[in-house]
């Protein structure tokens, strides 16, 4: 399972790689990182439909996570990648917008990695 993580915080990469080092070692999961919405879209263009799961931050300079969600859900139809939004702002407005735009899940920071792991494992 290929997972694309989009966040403007670069240390997210280290964090994810360590958190999921076992899964990575096992080959269960593969991670790709993008540090902005634009970069994420570029990655999806370049590696067509490789990622089945996208974890995106919402608050990013330039293209926001919600915008990215919208673009992804518009362009990449078959099969639609699972998009989970992770944000520091867990307010209702952000949640509703994300859900309306077709987000599959909505997680708030700080991320509970064990539950994230379970959620990821639950995805077929």
């Amino acid at each position: 399972m290929k997972i694309l993580v989009v966040d403007d915080e670069k240390d997210v990469r280290v964090l994810f790689e360590q958190r999921f080092r076992r899964e990575i070692r096992n080959g269960e999961m593969r991670f790709a990182f993008a540090f902005s919405g634009e970069e994420a879209l570029q990655y999806l263009e370049d590696y067509d439909h490789e990622a089945v799961l996208i974890l995106s931050d919402i608050n990013m300079p330039g293209m926001s996570g919600l915008e990215l969600l919208k673009r992804i859900k518009e362009k990449h139809h078959e099969p639609p990648p699972v998009v989970m939004m992770i944000t520091a702002y867990g307010d209702a407005e952000n949640y509703n917008t994300a859900m309306r735009l077709g987000a599959d899940d909505f997680l708030t920071k700080p991320v509970d990695f064990s539950s994230l792991k379970e959620k990821l494992k639950a995805i077929p």
């Binding site: 964090l15 520091a88 920071k109 700080p110 990695f113």
Partner: peptide, 17 residues
């Protein structure tokens, strides 16, 4: 708040890790 939240998250995450 956001700016503090982010480093704190990292602190927490890395320390848990």
């Amino acid at each position: 708040a956001h700016e503090i939240q982010n480093p704190l998250n990292f602190v927490n995450n890395f320390s848990e890790l």
